[in-house]
C-alpha cells in the first residue's frame, strides 16, 4: 500500500465567514503514528468530519485510502477506525453484546488484538458500558477499534480526562499492540508529553492551515530560543526574521524564532544587543511558541 492514507488538496471549509479549514494540503503516508496538534478551533475536528464524509468541504478535495471522502462505501468504513474523546459507545449494552455485534459487523475481526488490548483493563463481559470507568471505557473502545483491523485509525484526544494510570495504560495498549503496526494512526492531542512519547510524525495545524509537517525532533530543531540584553526597546516584531514569540523578563529579552542560525546573533547585535545566547527548546515550548505566534501577547515594553 504505497498510496497515501490521507490526501487533501486545497481543502477549505467555511462556516459563515469563518474558515475552519483554509487551503489545507496534507499528505500522510501509510504506517506510523502521526500526531496532530493545534489550538482549540484549529480545525482538527472539522478535518476529521470531512475525512469521514460527515461534512462536505467548501472547496478542495479530500481522499482517504484513495477514496473520495464524500463517497465512502461501507467497506471503506471498515478500514477506518475512529475513536473520539467521549468514547461514544451504546451505554445500555453489555461489553459482551457490543463485542459480538462488532464482531459480526467487521469481517476482518482480530480477536487477538482485542484480547491484547482489553487485557490491560479489568473489564468484565457482563458489565454494561455505562458501568465502566472512564479509563476502562477508553480501553474497551480502543480494543474494539483495533480489533476491526483498520488501515487507518483516527484518535481524537482519546486520553482527555483520563487519570495518569489510565492514560499510561491507554498509550501502552496503543503503542505495543501488534494491530497498531499494521495501521496508520492519526493521534490528536493537546498533551505534548504524550506526543513526545508516541509520535513519529508531527503535524501542526493552526486556524485551519497546515503550519508544519515533520518528525517532532526536526520540528524542535527549527525553533530556537534567544536570550539577549538590549537596553531600551527591542526591535519591532515585524522586523525580526522568523519571529514567533517574545517575552521581556527581568530586563532580558527572550525571543523564540523559527529557522534561524547563528546569523541571528548578528541581527540582535545590530539591534543593540550587548549579549545574545541561543538555547534549544523542548517540544512543549516549541509547539507553544509556534502556536503563540498569532495569538495576542501582552507586550512588556516598559
Amino acid at each position: 500500500m504505497s498510496q497515501l492514507v490521507i490526501e487533501t488538496e486545497g481543502l477549505s471549509k467555511r462556516f459563515g465567514n469563518k474558515f475552519a479549514l483554509d487551503d489545507l494540503s496534507l499528505a500522510i503516508a501509510p504506517g506510523r503514528i502521526h500526531a496532530l496538534v493545534g489550538a482549540n478551533g484549529a480545525g482538527k475536528s472539522t478535518l476529521f468530519r470531512i475525512l469521514l464524509g460527515f461534512l462536505s468541504p467548501s472547496a478542495g478535495t479530500a481522499r482517504v485510502l484513495g477514496r473520495d471522502c464524500s463517497a465512502l462505501t461501507p467497506s471503506d468504513r471498515t478500514l477506518v477506525g475512529y475513536v473520539n474523546e467521549e468514547h461514544t459507545l451504546p451505554e445500555w449494552m453489555r461489553v459482551r453484546e457490543l463485542k459480538s455485534m462488532r464482531q459480526r459487523e467487521y469481517k476482518g475481526w482480530n480477536a487477538r488484538a482485542f484480547d491484547e488490548v482489553i487485557g490491560h483493563y479489568q473489564v468484565l463481559p457482563e458489565q454494561r458500558v455505562r458501568e465502566l470507568s472512564r479509563g476502562e471505557r477508553a480501553g474497551f473502545n480502543l480494543a474494539l477499534a483495533l480489533a476491526q483491523s483498520p488501515q487507518l485509525l483516527i484518535l481524537d484526544e482519546p486520553t482527555l480526562g483520563l487519570d495518569v494510570v489510565a492514560k499510561r495504560a491507554f498509550l501502552e495498549s496503543l503503542m505495543y499492540s501488534n494491530a497498531t503496526e499494521h495501521c496508520t494512526v492519526i493521534y490528536c492531542s493537546h498533551q505534548m508529553e504524550e506526543i513526545e512519547r508516541i509520535a513519529d510524525d508531527l503535524i501542526v495545524l493552526e486556524r485551519g492551515r497546515l503550519m508544519s509537517h515533520s518528525p517532532p525532533d526536526e520540528f524542535c530543531a527549527r525553533i530556537s530560543h534567544w536570550i539577549c540584553d538590549i537596553p531600551f526597546m527591542g526591535p519591532e516584531p515585524a522586523t525580526i526574521p522568523g519571529y514567533l514569540m517574545r517575552q521581556k523578563l527581568d530586563g532580558l529579552h527572550h525571543y523564540f524564532v523559527l529557522d534561524q542560525d547563528a546569523a541571528f546573533a548578528e541581527f540582535l547585535r545590530s539591534n543593540g544587543a550587548r549579549s545574545a545566547n541561543c538555547m534549544p527548546v523542548s517540544l512543549d515550548r516549541a509547539v507553544n511558541a509556534f502556536l503563540a505566534k498569532n495569538h495576542a501577547t501582552p507586550t512588556h515594553s516598559r
Partner: peptide, 11 residues
Amino acid sequence: ATGDTRPIVRQ
C-alpha cells in the same frame, strides 16, 4: 524525560 530540550532519541 519528556519536556527536555533534547529529543528522546538524543536522550
